[in-house]
């Protein structure tokens, strides 16, 4: 897949590839899956732990600094992300956001319909963060980092 550079923004973009998943025996995964996390950040030395990514997606302290992006409910990539990073079922996550929303504490991440739209959004927004398939072709200038263990 080719990602079209958008103005000079791409110069600032670093896409951090955080992890390759080796699927454990689990009722929610039936086959191996590979997801990478991408982020548009000028802080090139930054890395994020799994806990920090979880917090970004669950309305924690870092959720205002970053712009988390989801794929639609039911998308296999989203299921993998929920399983391995959030560690909760979609049902539980939805009920959690009902709690956050109706108490005015936080709002859920925005949702983009396709991976193309996700990438386009990341390119256009600094500190946007998302998960995409590992096998997608990324611009050669992008940095790759491992998921930090803290």
């Amino acid at each position: 897949m080719y990602i079209k550079p958008v103005k000079s923004t791409l110069q600032k973009i670093s896409l951090f590839l955080f992890f390759n998943f080796v699927v454990m025996t689990n009722s929610y995964a039936t086959e191996s899956s590979n997801i990478v996390l991408v982020i548009n950040s000028s802080e090139l030395t930054n890395s994020l732990t799994k806990q920090q990514v979880r917090n970004i997606y669950m309305g924690g302290a870092l959720s205002q600094k970053y712009l988390p992006v989801h794929l639609p409910v039911g998308d296999p990539l989203r299921v993998d992300f929920n399983t391995y990073i959030i560690g909760l079922t979609e049902s539980r996550i939805q009920s959690y956001w009902a709690q956050m929303k109706f108490t005015g504490r936080s709002k859920p991440p925005i949702v983009k319909a396709t991976v193309d739209e996700v990438l386009q959004y990341i390119i256009e927004h600094e500190n946007a963060i998302a998960y995409i398939p590992e096998n997608i072709t990324l611009p050669i200038s992008l940095a790759v980092l491992s998921l930090s263990k803290g």
Binding site: T49, Q51, Q52, N55, M58, G60, A61, L62, S148, G150
Partner: peptide, 10 residues
């Protein structure tokens, strides 16, 4: 709200 690498708190 504040956080560290392995926690989130408020």
């Amino acid at each position: 709200k504040f956080s560290g690498k392995n926690f989130d708190a408020s």
